[in-house]
Structure formats: structure tokens, C-alpha cells
Design a binder for these strands. Structure first.
Lengths: 191, 191
DNA sequence: TAGAAGTTTCAGAGAGTTTTGAAACTTAGC
DNA sequence: GCTAAGTTTCAAAACTCTCTGAAACTTCTA
């Protein structure tokens, strides 16, 4: 059987360009993931580029490599910093600021889970409970039954929200320090 | 101690209007939750209204109650049907179609987790693995070390994606039939 | 303190998403 | 098959979110 070309026929690129392409591909995947999670796509691309390169880069490099304006970079970096996902570094003798990715990915994620998803769920939970209780106290004599049914359905939503909250809390507790304790969930392949 | 006015001073509404208001409030909370999850806000409002009312309603009622156009209602309902979250019902002798909420909330959620979140994570996982392996096979003799570092960081993202996938799978397996087995996570109050 | 390099801000452009409303289509009953 | 009630489709409007790029601002060096 004669050797045949690799299925990706690397488009006449040298290894250097291929590396760049590959890193960008991964960064775009992170961008998509972050967007799916309700963040801005650029944030994911910026963080991933910094993380994969493994060194601190100045904003200008990010603009160039990701083809974004300085404004977009500045905004993405500010927001990433707010989530403690990127750090700002000054180097003596260099006027530029350098940006470095937080490498503890689990810490990033659990922070988002705690601050964003948990808050969101608490907020809904409060509404459900309050509405349920108020409905029960409504003076509609002929319709006790109907009202109580609605209140019970709200009760189910309360249960669900509590389960969601409980799962989230258990998750961030479990992996309090790092991903380690959660690694048992990482089966190698689909099944 | 004299009885005092309730803290919400129900704005001069009769109980009927209050009920309506309260149901809308809960529906809006579901709308916000759904939006947060990447669906359209209206979808959440429609489902919640149907779920809480507990009876099948014709589209015209939904338009009126939620103040949306027939077009918006039609689109939201079609999408909700696609997620099997709302069912369409015909009644003999009535030309209208009635819509009814799926009441098994866990089934809805686990379906979304399986079809959407899991797919999303698989897709990223594949990219990470492929890029990692290709990087390792790149002929850049002087930079073995640097390339390997990038590959290792990609390896961490692979691990993370696998943990995410594993958790999701465990979650939908665990609550395969209904919420029951997950209820142990529903602690009654914050802690 | 002046000047240069770098960063942030923000108004407007652009892209993308959701909603409307009316026309086209479907269905049930006659 | 025709009609009327109801539903879907879809182009345009309204709205929202993101990005650009230049001006304002900050910071470092000398």
C-alpha cells in the first residue's frame, strides 16, 4: 500500500505558519465556548492565546494576532481582568503593559459558577418562593383549588432551582482547590 | 400590637389582577433564566405561562397575555415544540390549536443538556485533541520544548473538557427518569 | 515638566438578533 | 370546492450588542 498524502494537506504552509494556525484554531474553539457561556467571543480568544503561548504579551501583539482594534482589546482585557482570568504585568524599562493568562482553569470556572450562575439561580428561586407564598395568601374563596395547583407547580420550580443550586454548590465545594477531585469524571472516551 | 399593612401594599388591585401579576412575575423570571441559558426570552415566558396556568391555551391568548405579535408567538411555539417543551393539541369542533406545557421539567432540562451542552463540549474537545496532536507532530527541531509546553497546556484543556463531559453525563444518567434521585442536592436554604 | 509611548474611552458604524404585521397558506366545516 | 378562522412565513423595522478609530488621558523617561 503506497503512502498517501495526509488528509489535511497542510495548504503549503511552513511549520511556523501551521503552528500559528493551530493555536488560532484552538483559541477560536475557546472563543466559541465562552460565547456559548454568555461572554464575549473575543474574551475567549484573548485568554486562550495568552494561555497557550504561555508568556505575557503586550496589547499590541494581541491586536495584531487576533485582528482586533486596540479598543476591543482594551475592553476584553478589562473584562477578563475583572474575572481574574488575565493579569496585568509591568516590566521595568518597558512602557507597555503585558498581559498574562491565569493558568488555573478550574479556579476561573468555579469563580464564574459561584458569582454568576449561582446568583442567577438564587434570584429566580426568590421570585418563585415569593410568588408561591403570595398566591397562597390571595383571597379568592371560590378558587382555592385552582390557586393551590398553581402554587404547587411553583413549588416544583422551587425544588428544581434548589437542586440546581445544590449541584452547583456541591461542584464548587468538591473542586475547591483544583480539578483533581473531579478528574474521576473524566472518562477517556465517549460511551 | 396593631395589625399593619402588608409590606407590598398591593397597588389597589383586586385579587384577580394580583394573581395575574404574580403569574407574570414568575413567567418573567423563567424568561430571564431561559435567556441566560441562551434561549429566547419569550420562549421562557410562554412555557411558564402555560405551565403555571396548567391548561392548554390557544395562541391568541398567549399573544394577548404576553403582549406579543402572532408571529412572535408562532415562532416561539415552534421552537418550544422542537425542544419538546410544549405540545400542540387539537380539539374537535374548535378550529384553533391549543398549546400545552410539558410538565416534566427535568426531562426538558436533561434533553437540553444532552443535545446542546454535551454537543458543544464534544466539539471543543475534538478541536483541542486534534490541535494538540498536530502540534506534537510539527517538524520544528529547535523548538521541541516550546511546542511540547503548548501541547501540554492543550492537554489540560482536554482534561477539563472531559471532566465537564463526565459531569454532564453523570448528571443526566443520575436523573435519568426524574428529579427524584437529585433531590438530595436540594438543601432547603442557603449555607 | 515635556515628550513619547501606550492605554482607555466613547460616539458612531456595523453586525446580528428579535419583533412586527401583513400576505400567503392551511384546515375544518359546510 | 368554498369560506372563514387560524397559523405560518418573511421582509422590513426596531433593537441590541460588539467593534472601530480617533481623541483624551496616563505613565514613564529623561
Amino acid at each position: 500500500m503506497p503512502p498517501r498524502a495526509t488528509p489535511d494537506m497542510n495548504g503549503g504552509m511552513g511549520p511556523k505558519e501551521q503552528e500559528r494556525e493551530l493555536v488560532h484554531e484552538a483559541a477560536d474553539a475557546v472563543g466559541a465556548l465562552m460565547e456559548f457561556w454568555g461572554f464575549k467571543r473575543v474574551m475567549g480568544r484573548v485568554w486562550a492565546l495568552l494561555y497557550l503561548r504561555g508568556e505575557a504579551l503586550p496589547a499590541s501583539d494581541l491586536c495584531e494576532q487576533l485582528s482586533i482594534s486596540s479598543g476591543a482589546a482594551s475592553m476584553a482585557l478589562a473584562e477578563l481582568e475583572h474575572w481574574a482570568v488575565v493579569r496585568r504585568i509591568r516590566r521595568p524599562g518597558d512602557r507597555r503593559e503585558y498581559f498574562e493568562a491565569e493558568t488555573d482553569v478550574w479556579r476561573m470556572i468555579s469563580r464564574v459558577l459561584r458569582e454568576r450562575e449561582l446568583t442567577q439561580i438564587e434570584r429566580s428561586l426568590e421570585v418563585f418562593e415569593r410568588v408561591r407564598d403570595k398566591l397562597r395568601s390571595l383571597p379568592l374563596p371560590g378558587e382555592r383549588g385552582r390557586l393551590e395547583e398553581i402554587a404547587e407547580r411553583l413549588g416544583k420550580m422551587v425544588d428544581l432551582a434548589r437542586v440546581g443550586r445544590g449541584l452547583l454548590v456541591a461542584l464548587v465545594q468538591q473542586g475547591r482547590v483544583d480539578l483533581g477531585p473531579l478528574m474521576r469524571f473524566a472518562r477517556p472516551r465517549r460511551a
